[in-house]
Structure formats: structure tokens, C-alpha cells
Design a protein around this nucleic acid. Structure first.
Lengths: 148, 148
DNA sequence: GGCTAAAGGTTATGCGACTAACTATCCTTG
DNA sequence: CAAGGATAGTTAGTCGCATAACCTTTAGCC
């Protein structure tokens, strides 16, 4: 690939990353959330109570990030942690009542974000784009761990 | 749009953002750079010396981020700042000799990153994808600034 | 011309995310 | 069953990026 195209691609990805996050931040602020928190809450809403390790996999980030986010969500009263019966190391995280009540509005905000992101693209093209994006995500999987 | 598709889209974007950045970080580390720095260096290489305000536009980030990055690049000896003749407020940033010498290797790394990102996608599809990504970037432009 | 508004930079602060290093538990296996 | 390695979480420290507040200089305008 020539540099011009490579740079256009990298730049587009970086630009989308920054702006998508910025827009997410301003929308999530309506609910008192910060970007990243929605991944934890939606994972809990979809797959039920789970350990922080599992959350780290679902939310696509490292355990230390989960530790901090879960602590903040706990302080906000949206989530609670309990000791796992059978493994004293693990902490099982689950939604509180207040957390559950936030899921509906969160899903609406999250949907609105996606709609604004792809405005002007017809449904078929969106499906195609989604496939391509998931392919990219797969390509990039765990590559960052490589140390020479 | 239904929630499932919206979430798939948002999640794909967030995942790509995190992983692309992580891979970029590990590749740029070979050159002693951190992610974000490449945007400044490539902007200077492409469009020549310019003020920090212009760099902020080109690198798609806010002036304070530029201030800090430029200072680090200056400390690393890759960039230098001079007072603008005619406007005492502005600082003109330019590449040093060492900075210029880094551009070649940087372009190679940057190209390799893009190639790894789209591995397994044929050239025509990459072009199409690039167009879609730039459309998304346009959709998201400055939306984050909105305050209700 | 002097007063106010706008613009370029910097500083301070907060957030997410990472790596590295640490603790505590669990599980293997010799 | 005791020793060593793997695993769940936490803590500490760093970086990019953002916003808010501030300082300085420029520019507009009676």
C-alpha cells in the first residue's frame, strides 16, 4: 500500500475514534456516565452478573481499567460487587436497581449515537460497513500485545 | 435502527479505536514515539512549519493537547518552536534535522500499520471502506461540541 | 487613540486506558 | 501435602485527550 492511502486510512480511524468518543461523552453525560462505562453496564444487562475478568473481555479493555470503572460505578450506586462463592479471589459484579433502571435510557442514547454516526448511509451499506469494521477489529485483535 | 445493530456498530468502532491505537503504540515505540505524535510530525512534514493552532486542526485535537505534545517533541529534539514574525502570540513549529530524519522510518511504520489493519481485504474493498470511514468522520465532525 | 472583544498559548485538572509490579487465592504436581 | 506456577484483583505511574480558566497580544470600533 502506498503511504498516501495508508495515512488516509490511519487518520480516518484515529479521527473517528476521537470524534465518536467525544460525541459519546457528550451524550452519556446526560445520564451522568463517562465513555467506557456504557460497555460495562450493557455487558451486565446483556449477560447478567459476572466477574471483572469476564467484564474485561466483554468491554475490550484491561483488568486495571475495569477495576477503576467498576469502583466508580459502585460509588455512583449503579453496580455492586459481591464475593464469588467458590473462588475467594473473584468479585462478581451485578447491576443495582438504579443501574437496571438506567439501561433503558442508556440503550436509547446508544442507539441515537449510532444513528448519528451513519446518517446519510442507507441500511444495506451500513450492514456492509459493519461487516468490514468487525473484520478490522479481528485483524487488530491482540496485535498490540506484541513486544519485539 | 434497532439496538442490536447500533450496539454492534458502536462497539466495533470503540474496539477498533482501542486496538488500532494499541498497535500504533507498540509500533511507534520502535521510534521512541507515542501515539498522537505521529500526527504532528506528519503534518509538519507534509505542510511545512506552522503554528500550533494549525497543527491542532490537522492533528484533530485541541490546542492544549498540542501544547503538551509539541513540548515533548521539542524535549526529544525532533521539533523546535520559534516566535512568529508579525504575531507575538503565535509560535511557529518546525522539524529539526533529527525530526526530518525520522519521517522516512515513520512513514514506513505508518504504512505497515495500515496494511496490518486491512489485511485480507482486497484493494478495491479497501478503497470503498476508506470512503465510508471518511463519511463517518464527516458525520461526527464537531458534533461533540454540542452542549444542550 | 483607547476600550473592548477575539484569538494563540499555557496551565490545571479530570477522565479512560495502558503496563508493570504486587497481593491473595487457587490449582497442579512431584 | 507441600512447593511452585497460574489466575483474579488492586495499586502506582504514565500517556493522550478533553474542558475550564487564565494570560498575552492582536484587532475592531466607536
Amino acid at each position: 500500500m502506498d503511504f498516501a492511502r495508508a495515512d488516509a486510512l490511519n487518520t480516518a480511524i484515529r479521527t473517528i475514534a476521537i470524534r465518536h468518543r467525544a460525541l459519546a461523552a457528550s451524550m452519556l453525560a446526560e445520564l451522568g456516565l463517562h465513555p467506557g462505562h456504557e460497555a460495562v453496564l450493557l455487558a451486565l444487562a446483556t449477560h447478567g452478573p459476572q466477574t471483572q475478568k469476564e467484564l474485561a473481555v466483554e468491554a475490550n479493555c484491561e483488568p486495571p481499567s475495569i477495576t477503576v470503572m467498576v469502583r466508580k460505578l459502585e460509588t455512583a450506586g449503579l453496580v455492586e460487587r459481591a464475593s464469588d462463592a467458590g473462588d475467594a479471589r473473584a468479585r462478581v459484579v451485578s447491576l443495582t436497581q438504579r443501574g437496571s433502571e438506567l439501561i433503558g435510557p442508556l440503550k436509547r442514547v446508544w442507539t441515537r449515537l449510532a444513528e448519528e454516526t451513519v446518517v446519510g448511509i442507507d441500511e444495506e451499506a451500513v450492514a456492509e460497513l459493519l461487516g468490514a469494521l468487525e473484520l478490522l477489529a479481528g485483524n487488530l485483535r491482540a496485535r498490540g500485545k506484541l513486544r519485539l
